[in-house]
Every structure is written in C-alpha cells, then in structure tokens.
C-alpha cells in the first residue's frame, strides 16, 4: 500500500495557503510535517484525511484508509474510558479494545468517567482511538500536546508498532519523538502565491 499525494493545494476559509505539495509514503513509513504556526499543516492533514476537498491535486488513497486525530479528542466526559473506546471500535467495526488500552497504559483507568481524566490522560485516550480504528494511515495533528515524557514514549512505541504492522503515519509535530526513521517535510517552501488576476470567476482568489 502506498499513499501518494501529488500537486496538492489547500485552502483555509477560501484562501489558498499551501500549493504544489508532493510526497509519497510506503507501508511502514512515517512522515512528519514541519513548519511555523499558521503555515497550514492542519489544513493539509484535514485534506489528506478527506475532511475537506483539496483546491487542486490528488490524494492517492480513499478516505476509508485514513484515521484522523485532530486537536480535539472527541471524548465524551460522561462516558467511561472503556465506553468511549468501545463506541469507536463499534463504529469502525473492529473488535477488542484491550490492545489499545494496553498500548497507552489506560487499563487501570478504564472504568473511570472520561470527564475526570487529566489533560494528558485524555490525550492518551484520544490517541488510543487510532489503534482501535484499524485503519492503515494515521493522520495525526500535534499528537503530543499535553503529554509527559513517559506518555510521549508510549506514543512513539505505538506508532512504531503500527508501522511495523505495515501501517503509515502522517503527522504534524514540533516535538522530537525519537522516531529517527521518519521522513521530514518542511511546509514553508509550498506557501501559496496569489493566483493570477484574470481567471474566469476570478478576482475572487
């Protein structure tokens, strides 16, 4: 399996931010997007995950291959950790949630209401959802926010396990995860230039 992105241009609220992005990712590879705040990393990830249509270009895989984790974890505070994960397991039609609980050291918390978790624990729960989806491509937006060093280690280990099983990971992060084998792509060179003035529907960007 291979994820090929060709000539991808993306827009944020109607304004082009990045254009002409090309990369490809083989099974077992990870790619880290780098770039200053506001350059459009989130927009690229959302486009690859199929949440918004690209302005131009193509994402080589269907969105059925993607599992997306954004800034918000989609955790329901009145459900327990187990119920939260089981819900996603049911939605994605995958079986047991125990490997996910184990990978992020959540087993001891599994019967606690998710509302009572700390920020880092919530984040771990959000990331555990990626394991539960059973999808080959993980699209992760700043996955390590509010994680402590131990938890970052757990996360890196989970990503490695996913890659070893033939998965792929695409993420935007500023922290060094110790994933030395991951490729890095700097977003800055792809910054969009203003389009020509006289296209047909033009002058509206």
């Amino acid at each position: 399996m291979e994820l090929t992105v060709t000539g991808l241009s993306v827009a944020r609220s109607g304004i082009p931010v990045l254009e002409g992005i090309d990369f490809s990712l083989q099974s077992g590879e990870a790619l880290i997007l780098r770039g200053p705040n506001g350059v459009g990393k989130t927009t690229v990830l959302r486009t690859v995950a199929g949440l918004q249509p690209p302005l131009a270009g193509k994402v080589g895989l269907e969105r059925e291959a993607m599992a997306y984790a954004g800034h918000a974890d989609g955790i329901k505070s009145t459900l327990t950790v187990r119920e939260n994960l089981e819900f996603w397991a049911d939605v994605f039609g995958t079986g047991s949630i125990d490997p996910a609980l184990g990978a992020f050291d959540l087993a001891a918390l599994s019967d606690r209401a998710a509302g009572g978790l700390s920020a880092g624990q919530k984040r771990r729960l959000g990331l555990a959802r990626m394991v539960v989806t059973g999808r080959p491509v993980w699209v992760l937006d700043e996955p390590t926010v509010s994680l402590d060093t131990t938890a970052v280690g757990l996360f890196a280990q989970a990503v490695r396990g996913h890659l070893a099983a033939g998965g792929m990971a695409l993420m935007a992060t500023h922290i060094d995860l110790g994933l030395t084998e991951a490729h890095v792509l700097d977003m800055a060179p792809f910054r969009a230039k203003a389009p020509a003035h006289d296209d047909f529907d033009g002058s509206f960007l």
Binding site: G14, I15, A192, A194, S203, F204, L205
Partner: peptide
C-alpha cells in the same frame, strides 16, 4: 465587497 475582501486576503498572501 467580495473583491475587496479577496484583495485584502491577497495582500496577506504576498
């Protein structure tokens, strides 16, 4: 009005 907003955005793009 729409074009004006677009021009402002274009300025930000550089």
């Amino acid at each position: 009005a729409r074009r004006m907003r677009a021009l402002l955005a274009r300025e930000r793009l550089g």
